[in-house]
Write a protein that binds this DNA or RNA. Structure first.
Lengths: 208, 208
DNA sequence: CTATCGATGTGAGCGTCACTAACATGGATC
DNA sequence: GATCCATGTTAGTGACGCTCACATCGATAG
């Protein structure tokens, strides 16, 4: 069993080289291009099949349904995003600065990889993937603390203050990224977005 | 002409009382209920028709397509949201407090009228309505100022700072509202949301 | 070396949905 | 009473997600 699985997947996993070659990967790539060009809603299974040169039924051998394909993309996206944020944070000693860098990296990601960011922004997609749900729900603790729902004793006022600051920073970068990719701030380059994120997160600096 | 139009719309506009009675209004209402129960994507023209007791083609006499129906809902939503925010702002003398109240009202609206807020959150719907686009794009000036793209002379540093504060507040409430309705903070009551918004916007207070 | 098996791909078809075209109806106006 | 126009109906079209029965081919077993 173990030997077989190591042979049917020769070059690590996710490299399905069979009839088509790499249908699964090709489908994800094609979907990503569609999203970049015309948005998530424009992703059609039929279209992906035609563009990868297979029949319309073939994609369903790799993904049980359209949603599952989007979930796979979103999970890739989450991994890339996390890698970027951690890399950005590593180059700062001061925890506050590191946190700010994470926020700026988040916004950068949204602007530089809008297709990946777009799938990650679909609530229905997130809801269909327990791992993604867990990743997104990290803020619940902060909220409970602020609202005093914390089990076992009251939190100190200063802790509440600092936690509110963290949640504020999160909501701020989250909101700014959404505003940018949804075009609410007009067209904007990655550099401009980064500077904007830097300036705007700076407003929080004094409150922390 | 003028006389006719004043007679075919007896009780102000949007009251279309003809064969069905108020099909247009009924459709919007039904759509709103669907959104509240199962989200925007669950809105089907066929379903609305069946539930309002007309044929599947009838809705298209009132809306050229599905998107137009959603746009109509979103425009209602924008009106309600604006009314709430202005009402909240009116009860404060201090401009900073008034602005904070607007932000809190924004979050409250998202939690208390999630169906309306959901349509307003659809970028494709906003993009299809010039009025809504204009309303949403109010922040572009702020951004241009922060980035120094302002035509005619540099802005003073203090003006940049204050403008960044305004944009930060906007991004903050925007992001917090989205996080809440997308379930990223778990289930939450309107009161809790309001307190959360108040605490979190408070972080900005010192920066302004 | 061949029989077998499982993963992958195909062709045809089904149900749902947005939308359209041609015709019906009925209240207001001339 | 004829006419008109807004509104509604019936029937149909095409796009799309998805399923089913069958084909193919690489790898493994005897």
């Amino acid at each position: 069993m173990a030997r077989r699985s190591s042979k049917t997947e020769p070059e690590r996993k996710a490299d399905d080289a069979y009839h088509h070659g790499h249908l699964r990967t090709a489908l994800l790539q094609a979907a990503l291009e569609t999203i970049a060009a015309r948005g998530v809603d424009a992703v059609k299974m039929n279209d992906l099949a035609r563009r990868t040169g297979v029949s319309v039924a073939a994609p369903f051998r790799h993904f049980p349904n359209r949603q599952a394909l989007l979930v796979a993309l979103a999970e890739d996206a989450a991994q890339r995003l996390q890698a970027r944020m951690e890399a950005a944070a590593r180059s700062h000693e001061d925890p506050t600065e590191a946190h700010r860098a994470r926020g700026v990296a988040y916004v950068r990601f949204a602007v530089e990889e809008p297709a990946y960011f777009a799938v990650l922004s679909r609530a229905d997609v997130i809801a269909a993937s327990p791992p993604l749900q867990r990743m997104s729900a990290m803020n619940i603790e902060a909220m409970d603390l602020i609202l005093g729902k914390r089990r076992g004793g009251e939190a100190t006022p200063s802790l509440v203050r600092r936690t509110a600051g963290v949640l504020a920073a999160q909501a701020l970068t989250f909101g700014l990224a959404r505003m940018i990719v949804e075009g609410l701030l007009g067209d904007i380059t990655a550099e401009q977005a980064e500077r904007l994120a830097y300036e705007v997160t700076g407003v929080l600096g004094e409150g922390l």
